[in-house]
Structures are given as C-alpha cells and as structure tokens.
Amino acid sequence: MPLIELNQVSKIYTSGNQQIAAIDHVDLQIDAGEFCVLAGPSGSGKTTLLNLIGCLDEASSGTIILDNLEVSRRTVRQLADFRLHNIGFIFQSYNLIPVLTAEENASFPLLLQKVAKPERIQRVGELLHALGLQGLEKRRPRDLSGGQQQRVAVARAMATNPAVILADEPTANLDSKNSSDLLQMMRTLNRNKGTTFVFSSHDPMVIAMADRVIQLHDGRLVSDSHQDSVA
C-alpha cells in the first residue's frame, strides 16, 4: 500500500477564458520512507503538485489517496487535522511567523496539537540543537539569517514527527554550503526515522541527492526514475 497515491490527477486554472492545466493527468505512487525530488523547469507544476499532495489545494479531477483515504472525502477541518498530524511543510520562502521566536515558530504545530508547554520546549529544544540553532531560540525571524530561518522552518516541519515532509524548493534561497547542509539533515532524518520526503528543485546538485527523480513538464509527468543518490 503506497503512502501517497495519485490517479489521473489534474489541476486546471482558469484565467480569463484561458484554461491552464498546471497538473495534467498525473499518476503517481510514493511509498513510505522514500526520498524523492520533483524536478522540472519553472512553471512545470512542481508547486501545484506538492500543494495537492499536502491537501492545501483541491484537484480539478482524479483522486488523491493519502493514508488509505481519499482527500476529497475529508472536510476542511479534517484536512487541517490531517495536515497537522501527518504532514510537515518546508516552503521556499521559509514562511515563519514574524511575531514568534525561533522556538515558538518551531513548536507552533505542537501548540496546535495541544502538547503541554514544557514538553514543547523540550522537544523543540532538542531539534533546534540538532539543527545547530542552539542559542538562537529566543530570536525573532528577522534577526536570523536566511539559512537559520530555513533551519527553523525545518524544525517546525519535523516537530510533530510527521509521516511526510513536503518541501517546495527548500534550497532556492540558500547558498551551496547551506543547501547541502539542509539536504544532509533531510537525508539523516529520512534514514533514522523513516520520514518520507518529497521535495522540488531545479538545482542539479540537489536533484542528484535524491533516490528518485520525478520529472514534470507542462504539468505532465515525463519521467520517473530511481537513481543512486550522491548523499
């Protein structure tokens, strides 16, 4: 039983009288524990596909099955709950909450899960430490570098131990050192905890580090291949 299953999924955007198929009849299965990259040029539909998998967006047609249940059968509330407990997101532009400190940002999903404060602090403290952010717990996002903010975002995605982490061009705003550090961290988590990773990129160096490369073009899945990852 795959963890993520897409059957003939399409996402059509209508702008004016023009219809754009951002995702065009995609079939895809991802198993638990996979470490795969969505590759493709700009506008090929990577973000759209990740949003569909992450239940942030609804497909125009086709079915998406997560954890043995069709997404479209869930209510808005159930979807929010499902995201909270099963999916971690890492966004290209970090997307931290500006009024909260690094620690508070990282523990936000735990707050939503109603985890008690001492436990939140402890769990996130360990994560931040592992991500090399010790000493920066009380800083606001604007007082952190891009790489540090991205690591806080990673900590937030990891805090709830989700089954899947979806990352949309997580390295796009990072230099090559920070990029490969981030990829290493993701890889470690994938190996140690079996967390499934689906991330998008058009950086060949990043793509080379994945086990599986899913290539998109104009919304269509053009190739899907396993490789020996560099990492």
């Binding site: 808005v76 966004f91 999903p109």
Partner: peptide
C-alpha cells in the same frame, strides 16, 4: 500570507 501558513500547518479555520 501568515494566516495561510497557519492554516497550512494545520490550524483549523475556527
């Protein structure tokens, strides 16, 4: 934008 992040993280609309 921020509300979007919160909702994406799993905050319920209510």
């Amino acid at each position: 934008h921020e509300f979007g992040i919160m909702l994406a993280t799993g905050m319920s609309p209510f």
